[in-house]
Structure formats: C-alpha cells, structure tokens
Design a protein around this nucleic acid. Structure first.
Length: 287
DNA sequence: ACCTCGACCTGCAAGC
DNA sequence: TGCTTGCAGGTCGAGG
C-alpha cells in the first residue's frame, strides 16, 4: 500500500494499537529489507512507549519514549496488519502471506502489529529525534501536498526550469511529497494536463504560477483527500490494517484503464511509458 | 547540477 | 500443464 493515501490509511489504522502502548516484544523474522534492519533494533525499542504516530511523505514516523523515531516505509508491497489477539488466529489461518511477515510488534495493550512485505522494498530504521532534520532520507523531501503551505506558487517554483516531463516531476519526492504513479496519473487527468508536457510550463517567467499550476494543485489536493476518505486504494489483495479493503480503486478515472473510454470525452485512455513507468492518460482531454 | 536508468525482490497473469 | 515474459502502488545511487 504505498502512496500517501495508503500510508495515511495505515497510520490511522495503526495509531489506536500503537499510540500510548509499549513494545512488549519485538520479533524480526527477516532483516533483509531495503536496508538490513540493524542488529540492535529489537533492543533499542523493546520496552519503549510509542508517544505518537505521524507521517511524512510516504514514511510512518513513530515517536518513542527513548528519544528515537522509528521510520517505516512500505516500499512497493509492504502492509501492516493489526490483530487484537481475539481474531489473530482467524487472520493467521486466512492469510497465506504469513511467509512474508518480516517484523512483528507485540504491544503492551495486547495488540499485535505485523509488517508484511513480499518484495522487501520497505524499510525500518531508528533515528534519534534530535537528528531527524538531518536524516538523509527526509532531508530533500518537498512539501506535504495537503498542507496549507503547498500552493500553486510553491509548485511552480519547484517546477521552474525543469526540463523533464510533468509526470516525472510530480513523481520526484523533492518537488512534492507522497505522490506515486497512481495519484500522479489521476491528478494530471483531473487537471486536464498532459503528462508529457515539460514541467517548467506550469510556471511562467520568473517562476510565477500560471492557471495550470493552480488547477494542478487543486487536483492533487482533491484526489488525495478523496482517496484518504475512501481508505486508499486496494490493488490485488492489499488490505488496510484492520483487514478491510480500501475503495478508491473504484474511482480511478485513467489509472490501469488502458483502452477504456475516457470518462470525460469517451475517447480511449492511452498507456505510454515514461521514465520506465506506465502512464495512463487521455490524449484528447489532457493538454 | 540535472536527468535517466539499472538494481533491489517476489508474485501474478498472459502468452506460447 | 508447464515454462517464459512482462508487469506491479518505490527510490537510491551510478553513470551520462
């Protein structure tokens, strides 16, 4: 479950199980995530209390009583599952993916939080809170798209002078945080902008925002809000932390809809490849 | 400094 | 029924 709406949905699902609770026991069954989980990981968090669970871009950030922040990224295929102890057995029997349960947090309140990630592109890392500002993984990440400070002027400034496509620019986490392949495609369609357009064309001379930048910011905020409200998107068998499915995949207008009629003009949705990744768009609506 | 591309992994669906 | 191929919600780091 990896773009901003899915990570935010995960955060909201995990918060009741983790906030205010201690790590009673921590099991690391596979250390080989994107980066190896440090040897002292279990020792450093066992017995510590989760004071708060936040999110920055696609990272979950758990504030611990030790002064560390636990940074967690879901990669392409990561997900969290919360079992309250009563239904744990039921879930275990239903789930054939237990083979990829790499990290299990047994919380002091009886909840079990399991990180599952078949492809292991996800990551977990401890960083002292005081050093979070300098953390290389977070340092160059751009503005939160749902924050008040993210507006057309900011997006235009970030895109000014960029020779790349608008699609590639929006996927760049330094330009804006949290967007991925789905929501970039969906936002561009809603803003009626071509993914192939040069990124700099949403800024006027001297980096001032134009109408395209305004429409794009509006589209990004709307699609992310709507997706969060729907509990994110569930592709394949992905689930929310409580086991339920997200719903936003039913609201895709272009993503994964190659050949389907464009919801606006009834032309055909096209699939192209940009910087190695699929882009879905309507060539007649999006200019 | 910018940009593209390969690499990291597993699983699944489509094609032969 | 297999086997092969291509594709998948990310992003770091090497190389042009």
């Amino acid at each position: 479950m990896p773009e901003l709406p899915e990570v935010e949905t995960a955060r909201r699902g995990l918060a009741p199980a983790m906030e205010g609770a201690r790590f009673a026991k921590v099991e690391v069954r596979h250390r080989g995530l994107r980066w190896p989980i440090a040897k002292d990981f279990e020792k450093r968090i066992t017995g510590k209390t989760v004071e708060g669970l936040g999110r920055r871009a696609k990272y979950l950030l758990a504030d611990l009583s030790s002064g560390d922040v636990l940074m967690m990224h879901l990669g392409m295929s990561g997900s969290f599952r919360v079992d309250d102890g009563q239904i744990a057995k039921y879930h275990h029997e239903k789930s054939k993916s237990a083979a990829h349960d790499h990290v299990v947090f047994h919380m002091s309140n009886g909840a079990t939080v399991t990180f599952n990630d078949p492809r292991r592109f996800g990551s977990m890392k401890l960083v002292p809170r005081a050093r979070l500002e300098q953390e290389p993984l977070l340092r160059s990440i751009g503005p939160e798209p749902l924050g008040n400070e993210f507006d057309a002027a900011m997006l235009a400034r970030a895109c000014a002078g960029k020779k790349t496509s608008l699609k590639a620019a929006l996927l760049d986490q330094r330009v804006v945080a949290g967007l991925g392949n789905i929501y970039v495609c969906e936002a561009l369609f809603r803003a009626r902008l071509s993914p192939k357009r040069q990124a700099s064309t949403i800024a006027g001379r001297n980096g001032k925002p134009n109408a395209r930048a305004t429409a794009l910011v509006e589209a990004i905020k709307t699609v992310l809000h709507d997706a969060i409200k729907a509990g994110g998107s569930s592709l394949r068998d992905h689930r929310r932390a409580d086991g339920s499915l997200g719903d936003f995949q039913h609201n895709f207008l272009v993503y994964d809809r190659e050949g389907a009629p464009c919801p606006a003009c009834k032309g055909k949705v096209k699939r192209i490849v940009q910087t190695g990744r699929s882009t879905f768009y309507c060539p007649s609506c999006q200019k």
